[in-house]
């Protein structure tokens, strides 16, 4: 079991709905919480993490700031299509530190994970790190 959502492990962010080159979506999967992806206004905001192969997901951790409504969807297709809802949560506000949330992956399988930020506590939010504990699926 290791973090399969790392760029080092071959993960990618093929799609994100905001792009400021100073705060690119790749910052989400660089393993550091100091760097981040910033959204540039309005909701919803989305990004997709694509793994190297179909993964069995144990746990998903996200470090972010000012995020309110957050939903996750998974896809088992080769291309990032046909997403199915996994879970949805309203995060607590956290003014002076990053929000840290954990979700159980329930050992479901996914090639792609889509994160949908439905609302925020501010006009702009940031996602600093996503860590997905999993392993190549036997299916």
């Amino acid at each position: 079991m290791f973090d399969v959502a790392l760029a080092e492990a071959g993960a990618q962010v093929p799609i994100a709905t905001s792009s400021d080159e100073n705060f690119p979506p790749e910052n989400i999967i660089d393993g550091k919480s100091e760097t981040f992806w910033a959204t540039t206004g309005l909701f919803p905001q989305e990004f997709i993490i694509t793994f190297t192969a179909l993964m069995s997901l144990e746990q998903i951790k996200i470090n972010c700031y000012q995020v309110k409504g957050l939903a996750m969807e998974r896809s088992i297709e080769n291309e990032p299509v046909n997403f199915e809802p996994m879970c949805e949560k309203e995060l607590c506000p956290s003014d002076a530190s990053l929000q840290m949330e954990e979700f159980s992956g329930e050992n479901s399988s996914a090639k792609h994970l889509k994160f949908v930020i439905k609302s925020g506590y501010d006009h702009f939010v940031s996602v600093h790190k996503v860590c997905v504990n999993g392993m190549a699926s036997r299916e």
């Binding site: 981040f36 910033a38 700031y65 530190s97 990053l98 702009f124 940031s126």
Partner: peptide, 13 residues
Amino acid sequence: LYQERVEVMKTIA
């Protein structure tokens, strides 16, 4: 406002 907010994000992180 955006400029200010990303500065806060940097500090927080």
